[in-house]
Design a protein around this nucleic acid. Sequence first.
DNA 1: GTTTCGATATCGGTT
DNA 2: AACCGATGTCGAAAC
Lengths: 262, 262
Amino acid sequence: MIAAQLFQPDALELQEFLREQLLEPGRWLQIGGEMEVVYVGRAASTADAGDYLLMLKPDRTLQIHAAKGIKPLNWQPQVDSLELLEDDGRVVLVAERARPQEIVRVAFLETAFALALTARDEGGLVLHGSEAEMQRSLAAHPELIEVGLELLDVELPVGVGGVDLYARDQHGRIVVVELKRGRATHEAVHQLERYVNRIRDTVADEVRGILAAPEVTAPARTRLEELGLEFCEVTALPELDDERDAQPGLFAGRDEDDHSAR
Amino acid sequence: MIAAQLFQPDALELQEFLREQLLEPGRWLQIGGEMEVVYVGRAASTADAGDYLLMLKPDRTLQIHAAKGIKPLNWQPQVDSLELLEDDGRVVLVAERARPQEIVRVAFLETAFALALTARDEGGLVLHGSEAEMQRSLAAHPELIEVGLELLDVELPVGVGGVDLYARDQHGRIVVVELKRGRATHEAVHQLERYVNRIRDTVADEVRGILAAPEVTAPARTRLEELGLEFCEVTALPELDDERDAQPGLFAGRDEDDHSAR
DNA sequence: GTTTCGATATCGGTT
DNA sequence: AACCGATGTCGAAAC
């Protein structure tokens, strides 16, 4: 995994290292030390000299981390052009992105280490519990929302955006379902309201709106009731402990559902 | 900056390294190599064995990066408990978070390197061009939105959320301004609509709504016009080139504004 | 502690 | 290329 390494390099050594490694395709660079970082683009920022860690991945994404936080201090989601300069005896890296026009400029004051790595293709990440998965499960088992519910469509386009689940209840009324994988806020209610109003105006006079989520905030619940809309508790993940029977079958046929949904 | 380093360690050496370094406060750990990562919490994920980079910062945030993307493959914004285990001859790190209850489990298959760093306190980051800064500037110079506009309030609470700028125009009409630092979408229009309706219901019959942003999407603009709301072009950052005169004074008195706003 | 909103959001899908 | 919505969003401020 390590293709090249360098410790406590001076400016000249670092420059040589970078000049060489930046030309190698697929390199994953990590440089730790004292740096100054300036960003100008959608916004602009300046970081005083400090101990940071620069990471330049093979896909030309750049991030500079400080000792705190999940998020980097500065970053560049796509580096289109990379320049290596010298300024006042310091090595300077300028990473530019064309659209939006943005620049991250890193000046290396004192470098503790520089690593050039090679990484094999990553093994795929499989994520469960996304809203998309929830949608597939509920589309295959609409009775988990309400007995007698008959699915008519998923992601039905209505003005801007799409209705998560579009269905008909046992009394023949149109039902609009808005899904949230986490606690639903007033924004979700607002989204549901928008869809219900649109369907009411264009399709049927009587339309029910259901917000389906594991939880709902108090203000959202209040607003729901004011609007005559409903809430239905559904979980995005099967229970982690022995309580799997609490929501029987929600994910029982997931693999099959995945296929049937495509 | 480097407190300890280890290359191509076997399981025993890695375990000893971690046991030692995890007890040291303030350590910034980086481990590169082949790992398997499992996450269970709000959602759940599994990453097949692959070359990843684990970073555990002194503030007990954890992230595991793959070779692609700004965002980590897996992460933990706050590690409340950290456990070092052994499973089938492999070193395993389990990082747990209490609320929400979440676990990230990393199994080290083959480690290329492990670094323990110490980092001085970071120099502060100064960011310009945030919506908050925009708000301060426009609050100090409401004439940049419209001649004769008189500011009444900022972040005026109205039901849920707050009105960015609350003002009165030269004809005495109430004006609600919604700010966006980037291109405004239909969501911003919706937010504005909600505020305008609320003010209309509770304060004055005639209320104007202005969406102030550098740009607006076409659908959002259409929706704005349907609702009888207005758009005003304002920029979040002063121009980067010589065209600073294009928006004279927007940030001219920024420092003073900052003080007066506090 | 809960809720809300901003973010250089990033990221992926669809039109 | 623009637009839209989800995200294990994260993070901070207001309440």
